[in-house]
Design a protein around this nucleic acid. Sequence first.
RNA 1: GCGGGAGUAGCUCAGUAGGUAGAGCACACGGUUGUGGCCCGUGUGGCCGUGGGUUCAAGUCCCAUCUCUCGCCCCA
Length: 417
Amino acid sequence: MQPLTKIKGFADLFEPESLVFRHLEETARAVFGRHGYQELRTPILERTELFQRSIGEETDVVQKEMYTFADRKDRSLTLRPEATAGVMRAFIESGLHTREPVSRLFTIGPMFRYERPQKGRMRQFHQINVECLGLDAPWVDAEIIAMLWSFLQALQLPGLALEINSLGCPQCRPAYMEALQAFLAGTNDADLCEDCARRRHKNPLRLLDCKAAGCRAIMQEAPRIADCGCPACQEHFAQVLALLRGVGIEPVVNHRLVRGLDYYTRTTFEVVSGDIGAQSAVAGGGRYDGLIKQLGGPDLPGIGFACGMERLALLAQAPVKARPAFCMVLPDAGLLPQAFPLVCHLRDLGLPGDMGEPGKSFKSQMRAANRIQARFALILGPDEWATRVVQCKNLDDGTQTPLSLDDIPALARYLTA
RNA sequence: GCGGGAGUAGCUCAGUAGGUAGAGCACACGGUUGUGGCCCGUGUGGCCGUGGGUUCAAGUCCCAUCUCUCGCCCCA
């Protein structure tokens, strides 16, 4: 009988990894909470059409990376490949905007993309996702980026860089695209890599972030979006930068930073690390002012970002776990009925502790107490029971004290002192 | 979808020129009556990823296959 195994690109997380993930989540809740964000949990499964309409039919995500299948009534469903679409759907469906002019939401959970796994990239991966809906002022962009930065600072992650760019708005983007096309018209397919030669007409923005050396050299001279934007976009971008600098955040303006999803407008940003392999983007996001309306909702602006938890986990330290306060040691297993209530009582008073391994040799039990790093071994034998005490051996310094079994609160205080 | 690397004990890995497997760590039990950590001793534990092939003989050579991993692509 072959044991069953997990499927490719999916992971089981035991401690200490699960502790790291919990730490990421708890830090996010604390930081976002004090910025006025509320947690939203949306389903993992949505109608396929939602993602097609929000992410963009032409994107790689939609074209080849989604876990899509028919349910029992032949409806096409998709495991969410990203969070924003579902959050937008929930936002619109609930009519949240009719009760609150501004909605600040975050969500944490698994996403699914059918890709080849590698370092920092799983088929089931986890994101912390943040959206601010209903405001389009530059300070909102600065605020959400500053919040992301605070979150990363709180985690004490080393070696991160913040990159930022502006992609313009529906008013000025066409003019930029024309300028870009005009520039590309002066180049030959032969000078570009295979991918770029193919997508230069379909999705010319993507040529900007091509990693091929040849393409990079050519695109060095390409017109820059941030420069070609309309005055409003340029002013917006300048204010975002100024506000960030005002709080000591120095983003690197990266003119090649374009994002993979179609809905982004104006400000886009990314946090990258040089220490986690090829998948270096730890977080990414941007403004998406037309998306809500495009999905059938009110015409409200929005901005948001996503953090990849697996990638954060590559940089984060596991928090130290509280060690057990005690471990029961019974020289005579016959006293189990007397020891059991003691252990339960201490736990109910809030002490983490272990029952030990009654029935094993004394030596084994002491070894077990030491192995689990218990602070005290509680030794309860016939002699102790006869005199209504329990021996409390401090496993750090080796000292031992008998304490009364008739005052459990006092015992608990001693074990936690 | 396309490349590179790797699969031997729970973990990290050795394995010599083909001769039916080893170490360290971990685990278990001991080292005299009820005292852990260090040390010492003993022990458990291996379809050598899987299936074929060559050979008297394969962990070792050949083919296939699966899995993991890193990179391309893409993205968080």
